[in-house]
């Protein structure tokens, strides 16, 4: 097997919490607990889960915006974390990010042209007219026009801003794009446009995506592989079709079952597809009938294969 493009090995992120007044010891919030994931070239890996499950922290660790407590992240076998980590500048050519909120992700005091061109100068890729040329190219590529470069962000709609955010992420020609809820702040009708744009770009530029999302219908549409996270751990992982046609972990089933899907509601067919079989005497981990405490240690468990690419977390 060839080396995957990106490999996350046993990633753990703990946040220290402020000490309770006078008494008690320092507690830590265990945001991510031993997450291992791989991203192959040209693939879209989606991490789904609800707020606080650690999906965003995982993404930020990949971007170098969050220091892992332990574990490593490898790009083509070379570590992105630890003592031999690349500098911020070197890292910029590897992975870029598209942010959730198109209103907060663009500096209101810079023109679009400046937002896009600044990185080219920093990395000494292009200057002056060559840079504006590239900016114009990129703007047309994401469905805007070159004359948009002279405008300020507040002159654009949410969908257009998200296009600008995508353009900014692509300026350095990165290999990986981390999409943090790329469409959840957008209107339904705009979502389709941005999703189509992202899928087109992935194909033409040969990009690999890590998408963070809570919207399962978008995830199903775009992903090659899906990892479901719950309280800091991956509880189920597999190719998109196994996850959606054979959701097995109780949490995955609850997640899919909670999506208010108009067609299913109106046809009265709210049944979920059957779960895959798990070994006899095995028990899912964590127990979803009660809420796990993110400050406590979790019970020992492991991801067990239940299909060709399909794995689910069982208690040991």
């Amino acid at each position: 097997m060839s080396t995957p493009l990106l490999e996350i090995r046993d990633l753990t992120v703990h946040f220290p919490l402020p000490k309770p007044f006078l008494f008690g010891s320092t507690r830590v919030l265990k945001a991510v607990q031993g997450v291992s994931l791989t991203l192959n070239e040209g693939e879209c890996l989606s991490i789904v889960g609800e707020s606080g499950c650690g999906k965003s922290t995982t993404a930020l660790s990949v971007m170098g915006l969050q220091e892992p407590t332990s574990g490593e992240i490898l790009f083509k076998g070379k570590p992105l974390t630890g003592p031999n980590a690349p500098t911020r500048k070197e890292r910029a050519r590897i992975a870029q990010m598209v942010f959730q909120d198109p209103y907060a992700s663009l500096n209101p005091r810079q023109t679009v042209g400046r937002i896009l061109a600044a990185q080219l100068a920093l990395h000494d890729i292009a200057h002056g007219s060559e840079a504006s040329h590239r900016v114009a190219d990129m703007l047309s590529r994401v469905g805007l026009t070159p004359d948009h470069a002279d405008r300020y962000p507040h002159e654009f709609s949410g969908g257009q801003r998200q296009r600008i955010g995508i353009a900014r992420a692509l300026m350095l020609d990165p290999k990986i794009l981390v999409l943090d809820e790329p469409v959840s702040a957008l209107d339904v009708s705009i979502q389709a446009q941005i999703i189509n744009l992202l899928m087109d770009l992935q194909e033409t530029l040969g990009l690999s995506y890590i998408m963070i999302s809570h919207d399962l219908s978008v995830v199903e549409h775009v992903s090659d592989r899906v990892a479901v996270m719950y309280f800091g751990r991956v509880v189920e992982e597999g190719d998109w079709h196994s996850i959606f046609s054979r959701p097995t972990h109780p949490y995955t089933r609850r997640l899919i079952g909670s999506v208010p899907d108009p067609d299913a509601i109106l046809s009265g067919d709210r049944g979920l597809p059957d779960a895959a079989e798990i070994p006899r005497n095995a028990r899912f981990s964590p127990d979803v009938s009660r809420k796990p405490d993110p400050h406590e240690n979790v019970e020992p468990s492991q991801l067990v294969s239940i299909g060709a690419t399909h794995r689910v977390r069982l208690a040991q």
């Binding site: 990010m97 810079q110 920093l122």
Partner: peptide, 26 residues
């Protein structure tokens, strides 16, 4: 913690540069 400051970090800009070009004007 806003996107544009994070984006500047991700793009490889140094902290001094980010404070000068992203934060100060705002």
């Amino acid at each position: 913690n806003q996107g544009f400051v994070q984006a500047a970090k991700v793009a490889g800009f140094g902290d001094g540069n980010i404070m000068r070009t992203q934060i100060l004007p705002n």
